[in-house]
Structure formats: structure tokens, C-alpha cells
């Protein structure tokens, strides 16, 4: 590792490893975990990783902070634009997290659980009940059943179709 001055190449490599590491850990956490609250925490980590990567994209070797007055005027300065982007991204992240936590509160109050698999079943049941039909794959409407028989010659299609349907779906 050639030490080319204080901010040598290895400093940037370490930072990039940190940024990509946070991103992958956050993505794994969001995708693999089974508890909604833990997914929100993994989202926090993924956002921190993306913000770190964004600030890194403006970093220059040997440049200082873009605040005038704290150092000599002609010293090279770091690119200020990615820092503005990250300021915005951080506050967006907090807004989304606060909304996520409040919706989790309501889910927990209604269903008492935050497990992703259980909640997906609840979701399916509720949508079917809200639409006023038997849930998928239940005794009344086995999954494989097709609501309408294959089309029969047009002449008496309407009459037979009507009788078949009501028989099948009532």
C-alpha cells in the first residue's frame, strides 16, 4: 500500500468498503428479515450506506471542507454539491421512517403481530372479505376453480352461462 501523503488511496478504499458494506447489509436485512420493525432498522442502515457513498463521490484527495473563513482562501475544497444532496436524503429518510413506525403502530394495534408472513395472510383474508367473496383456496372457492365454464356456441350462451355461474360461485 503506497502511502502517497496523508489521504492516500487506501483511505478512499476503506471508505468505499464501508459504504458498499452498509448498503449490502441494509439490503440483506430488508429483504431477509421477517419482522417489520427490523426491516425499518435495515432501511436506516441502507440509507446511511447510500448517503456515505454520495458524500464520497464529492471527496477529493487533500481538499478541505467548503466553509470559507476556516482555512486559507486558496486551499482546494471538497465538492459541496453531494453534501447538499445528502442533507436532503437524510431528512427524507427520517420522514419516511417516522411514517413507517406510525403505520407499524396501527398494524400492531389491529393485528397484534408484526410478523411478515402472518400479516400477508391477514392482508389476503381482509381484501377478500372487503370485496365480499370467499378467500382464495378456501372450501367455498377452491383455488383451481375457474369462475366461468368454457364459452359454448353463442346461440344459448347467455342462458347457460348464467345458470352455470350462479351454480359455481354461490
Amino acid at each position: 500500500m503506497s502511502a502517497m501523503g496523508p489521504d492516500s488511496l487506501s483511505f478512499v478504499v476503506v471508505m468505499y468498503v464501508g459504504a458498499f458494506g452498509l448498503l449490502v447489509i441494509g439490503a440483506i436485512g430488508m429483504v431477509m428479515s421477517n419482522h417489520l420493525f427490523r426491516m425499518v432498522l435495515a432501511l436506516v442502515i441502507a440509507e446511511a450506506g447510500a448517503n456515505l457513498l454520495l458524500v464520497l463521490s464529492g471527496w477529493r484527495d487533500g481538499a478541505l471542507a467548503p466553509i470559507l473563513g476556516t482555512h486559507a482562501a486558496d486551499v482546494p475544497m471538497v465538492d459541496p454539491v453531494p453534501q447538499v444532496l445528502v442533507l436532503t436524503a437524510i431528512v427524507i429518510g427520517v420522514g419516511v421512517q417516522a411514517l413507517a413506525v406510525s403505520v407499524l403502530l396501527k398494524i400492531h394495534r389491529i393485528y397484534g403481530t408484526l410478523d411478515v408472513r402472518a400479516l400477508r395472510r391477514h392482508l389476503e383474508l381482509d381484501i377478500c372479505r372487503d370485496a365480499g367473496m370467499a378467500p382464495e383456496g378456501s372450501r367455498e372457492a377452491p383455488a383451481g376453480e375457474r369462475p366461468l365454464p368454457p364459452p359454448i356456441p353463442v346461440a344459448d350462451a347467455l342462458r347457460t352461462a348464467a345458470t352455470d355461474q350462479t351454480g359455481a360461485t354461490s
Partner: peptide, 13 residues
């Protein structure tokens, strides 16, 4: 790594 083109950033600075 470490050498951003500083196109917009440089002009703003």
C-alpha cells in the same frame, strides 16, 4: 476513486 470531475462543484466553489 478520489478524483471527482469537479465540473459543477468546481464552478460553484
Amino acid at each position: 476513486f478520489g478524483e471527482p470531475p469537479m465540473r459543477v462543484g468546481g464552478a460553484i466553489l
